[in-house]
Design a protein around this nucleic acid. Sequence first.
DNA 1: TTAAGTATTATTGTCGACAATTTACCGTTA
DNA 2: TAACGGTAAATTGTCGACAATAATACTTAA
Lengths: 234, 234
Amino acid sequence: MYLANPTKQTAVTTADKVFEHMQHAIVEGEIPSGSKISEPELAKRYQISRSTLREALNRLEKCHLIERKANVGSRVVDCTIEGLLELYITREALEGMACRQAALNMSDKEIVDMQAMLQKHAQTQELKDGVAYYQEEGDLDFHYKIILGSHNKQLIDLICGQLYHLVRMYRFQFGMNSPRASRAFNEHSQIIQAIFDRDGELAEMLMRRHIAASRKNIENKIAQQALSEINEQK
Amino acid sequence: MYLANPTKQTAVTTADKVFEHMQHAIVEGEIPSGSKISEPELAKRYQISRSTLREALNRLEKCHLIERKANVGSRVVDCTIEGLLELYITREALEGMACRQAALNMSDKEIVDMQAMLQKHAQTQELKDGVAYYQEEGDLDFHYKIILGSHNKQLIDLICGQLYHLVRMYRFQFGMNSPRASRAFNEHSQIIQAIFDRDGELAEMLMRRHIAASRKNIENKIAQQALSEINEQK
DNA sequence: TTAAGTATTATTGTCGACAATTTACCGTTA
DNA sequence: TAACGGTAAATTGTCGACAATAATACTTAA
């Protein structure tokens, strides 16, 4: 079971609901990357007042999905290659440390649960040849579990509450639902083993390599896309 | 010249001004750590409407200085030892990476400027025996310069825009304006040298040690305080 | 006297309107 | 034709009032 935001309880206020809706809309490109946000227009579309819309916008800004300028307005963040690289470098730092902390702080039960999850993913992968499934949902589940396992509120909030919305946005917009599944699976196994051994130093190093590899994979994908587009034009 | 927030331009809107004012008030303990925030009361005190106050509160929440619960209200974050440790662990991850990136991305001119700054701080330190000065302003200047030198917007925003407000709050509330000055100075020199040599790996390691040492220093301070308080009660 | 349930008060969430600023348009001029 | 200036439109920032929710005080029953 995959959670878009494992740290947040169900929305109670209407601003919450609008926030969640817009969050998905932005991540999945329904509201295009880089586009300007018109407060009056959106307020009318969602049938709410501008006040509650602005409340939602504030939360979107908090997770870096939009950018605001005083007296000018809000824009959806645009997905650039530089932005992607910066995001993954930040991920490498934060998730690496989270993984180290997880090795120190996770309870035995948490570790067992995570091993079980990995087993389940392995079976699912074999059954369906479910490459896309594993990469998308399984990978996120794995990373979320480790981040939560750090038991560090600061890290958890920064990564899950802010960074990961952007990660999902980049994955979606650049069409990265895919391979590297078996390699990723092996890397996940190694990381869990390091955590099981309570070897924080190794766990951090492996996680950093894992994310760096993921970044390079995406870079290659983008390069391929650019190439094929050039060939089409001929 | 020390900047509270090197990434932000001067405030233009009244919500900005209220935000900055409250930011200082919270960091310096004028609005006590852990206290509840009454929107009607504060709106009256600052002579503004609740709407613009709530806008300011949203920004305070963004840099983790307050916490909000739906239909309940806002509280100033409380300074706990666990929170301090979590904060410094996060700093270690982020600033370590920022330092690595700075070694790769800083321009030669930026590096020269930073070396000059260190020289100036050294002289100031000798002249005034200015331990407090160096630790407080000089240390922050140094760290800001490196973070900005990473040329990574994601890292800069996370560290300068969010984490450092909390760092300053903890320093202020736990009364950490002081020593370790000469040791810190030497560590700063080493870090700059590594950046000058474009050795990202070493730069990251040194920065992480530097922050870990700073954390341990604060831990000791707190332990001493706790001891002396016990002795006073006898 | 205490506990639970209800009524009251206070606080937060939401709304629509006005003020201030920016953007867009248009006419004038070099 | 292009550039500059000024006016008009639109957008954002701010305000005060109302609705919904939570905290408090009070009453009543065991």
